[in-house]
Design a protein around this nucleic acid. Structure first.
Lengths: 189, 189
DNA sequence: CGCGACGTTGATTTGCCTCAACGATTGTGG
DNA sequence: CCACAATCGTTGAGGCAAATCAACGTCGCG
């Protein structure tokens, strides 16, 4: 039952009757993604939001110089999307790639916008989720400014051991904002 | 009429009848803050959200080593709060200080939580505002990782000229994540 | 007036990047 | 199943970006 995980995640943010939550979950479509495949590629418009059931995704940007910058990783029980492209229906600057064979519950944009209007509780759910996200991004910025690369690395593997175990050092370095060579030297020292 | 600015800001995010928006705006209390004074200090709990009518604020953290890290500045038409402390009612790690004599519209936390439940539109308003904020924080992180200090400085003064004009170079440097000495050298070269 | 915060500059050090090379691992097609 | 290619992690030499520390003149404010 893939929906059980989604239900628990939702109920962790808002109260909802079992009938309402079932109606909500029905709007999410189970999708399998093969390792290496993309849910979204830079230049396209993001018209979905996803909730990861199993596997692992990397959400990253490639800049003008061809360098990769990982915004975050999404594993079981995480949400993913390009929120900027999704809201404004503009061309995305992000790639969302499966690092393993994965399963996601996807909801279509128009479906989601409709749900906002149909249900005050859905609106509340995503209001709360977004506010939590803002807090998390603020803390990440402060960590980036106050901690050296070595400490950011320790923080990452201690805070997200289940993610660290699934990804390569190169991917970690692009999340930390350093080169993979320097990460290698960090791990040695 | 300080509320006109708030009304326009809100209407820029959601539609609202004039009666409803008036009811909403009434919950915000005009507050004057003298230059140098704090709306919030590290260690206290944030129980308000603010909307700046005039003046300028700096929202920053002081780390274990005594270094200041500026999250953002808030001038006319900007919102401010410690969203983490506000949501979880935990001790704040942020300071919110007026850099000029300023005027803010403040809404109390309990009042705001009540409004969420009373009005679907209010819930929608803050859902949209939060989602926009998430997008902005994500873009800021990518800029921090992909641009050198000099380019981040140019970006800042070009994107927020009205802020740049109100603050000191030291404050800009703590926003950019560099020392004030280095910023001085950037400006020279 | 005098103090404290500010911006500047120089000398030195440090954190991190670049480039290049290498072996090890992983994935792939024949 | 093997051979090869691609990607990975590692290491070293050298360079650059930014931090650190110290000193100095300036300005605004009490």
């Amino acid at each position: 039952m893939p929906y059980k995980l989604l239900q628990d995640n939702i109920l962790n943010n808002v109260e909802m009757s079992s009938s309402e939550i079932e109606l909500l979950c029905k709007c999410f479509i189970p999708t399998s993604v093969n390792r290496g495949d993309y849910l979204l590629q830079q230049g396209n418009v993001c018209n979905f939001e996803g909730f990861v059931i199993e596997g692992c995704f990397r959400i990253y940007n490639i800049d003008d110089e061809g360098k990769e910058h990982t915004l975050y990783f999404a594993v079981r029980d995480w949400w993913l999307m390009d929120i900027d492209s999704f809201m404004n229906q503009t061309s995305s600057e992000l790639n969302i790639q499966a690092l393993e064979d994965s399963k996601v519950l996807k909801i279509n944009r128009l479906r989601k916008e409709a749900l906002y209007n149909e249900s005050h509780r859905v609106e509340k759910l995503f209001r709360i989720m977004s506010q939590k996200a803002v807090a998390a991004w603020q803390r990440r910025l402060i960590r980036n400014h106050s901690m050296k690369a070595k400490d950011r690395y320790s923080y990452f593997i201690n805070t997200y051991p289940e993610i660290a175990q699934k990804i390569t050092d190169r991917q970690i370095s692009s999340y930390l904002g350093i080169t993979h060579e320097f990460l290698s030297k960090i791990k040695k020292g």
